[in-house]
């Protein structure tokens, strides 16, 4: 009996696996496959532990070293200086705005991608979706500098029409604009599977039952897309909350987010204790918000079924 080569190769592999990994070890297989991920997360947790440690030591201005004694001084500093509250508030507001705008813009894009009957349009939408991933965030931010700058395309066009030029760069709206543009592909990527999971018959059924498309959207499509909407919101929100490059480059120091403040603490004023404390505040805040969303939305979010 002559079987194809690929079959015989697979049979050989199976035989080898049976020797190297006997059946009684098989229930460990799942843990074995999980191990790399667990190690990675474990290293992160250790790093977080060190950060917590740092944050509890005050900077000794005489030696520029962290003092031995434990104290909450760094956290007190964050509370005392209004600049940190302002940066934090700006970051949170930015994250909320960017999430709302990006998800709102991503929804029609993802819907068109899923529902279009034209293969050409679907390909074009897919290419346009993945193209930005090939261009780094910093490169894109510099691209916006060229377009929006004082001598940039927009202002040249305005001047050409005899209109006064405007300062578009180094403003909060510029940062929000850059972040939305950066987050849009993430939001679309997370919405596409959620929308693809809604059978088209659901929409046709709704229509034949008497609903116009807007009612169908409100009562059928959006409720059924909820897992994707929440998943996309959570990802965009957390990515924005911790973003560094866009506020730094497009904000030019006028609209720093919390990540910039952390960077400055570590590398500008060389106060690792304060930087660590700010990091802990950011991690805690982000975790609480995401946990809150999952609590309210249930475990069905992100399409993870099982616990109902």
């Amino acid at each position: 009996m002559k079987y194809p080569l690929s079959w015989r190769l697979l049979d050989g592999l199976e035989a080898a696996a049976a020797v190297l990994w006997p059946a009684r070890l098989r229930r460990l297989t799942a843990w074995g496959l999980l191990a790399p991920a667990l190690v990675l997360v474990g290293v992160l947790v250790i790093g977080l532990g060190y950060m917590l440690e740092y944050s509890l030591h005050e900077l000794d201005l005489a030696t520029y070293r962290l003092t031995e004694a434990y104290s909450l001084t760094n956290y007190q500093t964050i509370l005392d200086r209004p600049v940190y509250a302002r940066v934090l508030g700006r970051t949170l507001l930015g994250a909320v705005l960017v999430t709302a705008i990006a998800v709102a813009l991503a929804f029609p894009y993802a819907y068109a991608l899923v529902r279009t009957r034209s293969a050409a349009l679907r390909k074009a939408l897919l290419v346009a979706l993945f193209l930005p991933f090939f261009i780094g965030q910093v490169v894109r931010a510099y691209g916006w500098l060229i377009v929006l700058g004082r001598e940039g395309l927009v202002n040249s066009a305005l001047a050409g029409m005899g209109l006064p030029t405007v300062d578009l760069l180094f403003t909060y709206p510029a940062v929000i604009f850059g972040l939305v543009q950066y987050m849009l592909p993430f939001a679309i990527l997370l919405l596409v599977p959620a929308l693809a999971a809604i059978p088209e018959d659901m929409e046709l059924a709704s229509e034949s039952l008497g609903a116009r498309w807007i009612s169908t959207f409100r009562h059928v499509v959006i409720p059924m897309a909820k897992p994707g909407l929440i998943g996309a919101s959570v990802v965009v929100f957390t990515l924005t909350l911790t973003d560094f490059a866009m506020p730094e480059i497009l904000g030019g120091g006028t609209s720093d987010f919390i990540a910039s403040a952390i960077y400055d603490s570590f590398f500008q004023i060389s106060n690792p204790g304060l930087g660590a404390a700010l990091s802990m505040v950011l991690v805690t805040l982000g975790s609480l918000i995401v946990a809150g969303v999952f609590l309210v939305a249930g475990t069905g979010t992100l399409g993870v079924r099982g616990a109902k």
């Binding site: 046709l204 116009r212 059924m224």
Partner: peptide
């Protein structure tokens, strides 16, 4: 349009709204 036709339809996969 379908929503103005007086037609009740039962789909092959039923298309009951799961939520």
């Amino acid at each position: 349009p379908p929503y103005r036709r007086s037609i009740g339809m039962v789909f092959q996969k039923l298309a009951l709204f799961p939520h």
